[in-house]
Design a protein around this nucleic acid. Structure first.
Lengths: 131, 131
DNA sequence: TAAAAATACTCCATAGGTATTTTAT
DNA sequence: ATAAAATACCTATGGAGTATTTTTA
């Protein structure tokens, strides 16, 4: 399994067609069918069934789609954030605050995300929550 | 960026050495240096600096490590779960329950995970929470 | 001088493309 | 007859290995 195969699979699911997905991805049609077959053979599952001229996704395919999309989203975000660091657009800032400020800080961060700032990483709790 | 490069990077961070990581991964030492250089050049960042005979990770490298580890963990879990489906060991079960049972169900699921069951997917809220 | 990383190269697996065949409307 | 997927085949990129050189404690 690699990100390329998952990317191809996701596009095929979203376009419900090898040809359409191939067009969007700017690759030749056979590559997509091959990538999907590789996943199916590696895992011993069926992701699509041929339905007339097109493809019908299976339950297993749907399960994979949800999780592949999440994984690819994470990979894409990581890629963009690292590129941003490379361009010097960001630095790492560690911010500490107490419970009373959690909501207002969260609001600020959400605003930064909307502004296109590359907000990376998450929260770290350095002391156990009371109780 | 691909999972192979991140896998190599993670191993180098964890072993603080190309040679040691190469030994664990059963690949030749130069491959790891090449993979890391590819990431550095793609993003324009510095992940390690040569420190004496070994390598010293940079702040950027640390940032990448945290996120790469998370991504690789997700990929590994996905891989195992799909393989389990292929072996017929799992089926998809959609379970609905009301708010009062959330805690007890969560506890059961956590127990299943500890038992090694392949618990996949997450929660879906089909109605807005009250208020 | 010993231990680790970096470099130079060769080889091969596989990703990608083109052309064609098969399938179903 | 047409539109889509599947198959066959060829090419080329890049991932892997070996051998060697450079770096530094």
């Amino acid at each position: 399994m690699n990100l390329r195969q998952l990317t191809y699979f996701r596009a095929v699911v979203e376009h419900r067609s090898l040809a359409a997905a191939a067009d969007v991805l700017n690759v030749a049609q056979p590559n997509l069918g091959i990538a999907i077959k590789q996943l199916e053979e590696k895992w011993g599952v069926t992701l699509f069934e041929r339905a007339g001229r097109g493809l019908a996704i299976t339950d297993t395919g749907r399960e994979l789609y949800e999780r592949a999309a999440e994984l690819l989203g994470g990979a894409s975000a990581l890629d963009q954030d690292m590129r941003a660091i490379g361009r010097g657009f960001t630095a790492r800032l560690r911010v500490g605050f107490t419970q009373i400020l959690v909501d207002s800080v969260a609001e600020m961060v959400a605003g930064m995300r909307e502004d296109g700032s590359a907000v990376m990483g998450g929260r770290t709790r350095h002391r156990p929550s009371p109780g």
